[in-house]
Simulated scan of single mutants.
Amino acid sequence: MARIRHPKPNASPGCRVERVLDLIDGKWKGVILYQLMTGTLRFNEIRRKMNNVTQRMLTNQLRELEADGLIVRKVYAQVPPKVEYSLSERGRSLEPVINSLKAWGEAHLPALESDQDVAA
């Protein structure tokens, strides 16, 4: 069962931006949400799309996303067990935000990466 997450104690009361960023913080949550925008996926399908994530990290991130109501985990009663992940309505409402982050990255990351190459 997914653990219940609580807001960070040092978070500014009423700061919605900070709370939203807390929901999607971490290296993998945004990528998981992005992958699930294409549709329902099983655990290993997600893992194959995200080469560098460990099984433990992916499991933890999926549990946190489920606890926060951003994804839905559906377990089928069969042997071997079958588990599917999909975006919830709340998670689907993040699609414009994720698409905006992707567009910003496509527009600005090449310049940032070339600046780092020059500095090195």
Rank of each mutant, 00 (worst) to 15 (best):
I4T: 15
I4Y: 13
I4G: 11
I4P: 11
R5K: 14
R5F: 14
P7T: 09
N10V: 09
N10D: 15
A11Y: 12
C15A: 14
R16S: 13
V17E: 13
L21A: 11
L23S: 09
L23G: 05
G26A: 02
K27R: 13
K27P: 01
G30E: 01
L33D: 01
Q35V: 04
L36G: 02
L41G: 02
R42D: 09
F43K: 05
N44H: 04
E45P: 03
R47L: 06
R48F: 03
R48P: 00
K49H: 02
K49N: 11
N52H: 13
V53Y: 05
V53D: 00
T54M: 00
M57Y: 00
T59S: 12
N60P: 01
Q61W: 02
R63N: 15
E64H: 04
L65M: 13
E66L: 06
G69F: 06
I71C: 06
V72F: 02
Y76W: 15
Y76A: 15
Q78Y: 06
V79C: 09
V79R: 05
P81W: 01
S86A: 10
S86F: 03
S86G: 11
L87N: 07
S88Q: 10
E89N: 09
R90A: 15
R90M: 12
R92T: 11
P96W: 10
P96G: 12
V97M: 14
V97N: 02
N99A: 15
N99W: 11
S100G: 10
S100D: 13
A103Y: 10
W104Q: 05
G105P: 07
G105Q: 07
H108D: 07
P110E: 04
A111N: 06
